Amino acid sequence: MGVPKKRTSKMRRDRRRAANNNLRTAVQVIQCSNCKEPILPHRACSACGHYKGRETVPAQA
């Protein structure tokens, strides 16, 4: 079994963990094909209720 010889310091551990925070990408936003409102991809529009060109859920008032 591989066992570490020395204890990993808090600074080294935290620096390694923080390196992954910079890899995250921004959330993609697209426009609804019906009402042009910004929505998340692969989700029904909350403004008009359309998804892939047809109404799937009733629009919220």
Rank of each mutant, 00 (worst) to 15 (best):
L23G: 03
N21E: 10
S46T: 11
C35L: 04
V29H: 05
A18P: 01
N34G: 02
Q31D: 13
P38K: 07
R7T: 12
C32F: 07
P38Q: 11
A19W: 00
R24S: 10
K36R: 10
K52T: 08
A47S: 13
C32Q: 05
M11F: 09
N34S: 04
K10D: 11
K36P: 00
R7V: 09
I30E: 13
L23E: 12
E37Q: 12
Y51C: 01
A61C: 04
V27Y: 03
R13I: 01
R7N: 11
K10I: 08
V57L: 14
Q60H: 08
H50V: 06
T8R: 14
M1G: 12
G49A: 01
I39A: 00
I39M: 10
C35S: 05
K5H: 12
N20G: 11
R16Q: 09
Y51M: 10
L23V: 11
A59P: 14
A59T: 11
R12T: 10
R24N: 06
L23C: 08
A44V: 07
N20R: 14
K52R: 14
C48I: 02
C45Q: 03
R54N: 04
G53Q: 08
E37A: 12
R54A: 11
C35G: 07
A26G: 01
Y51N: 00
R12Q: 15
C45N: 00
G49R: 01
M11V: 14
P58S: 04
K52Q: 14
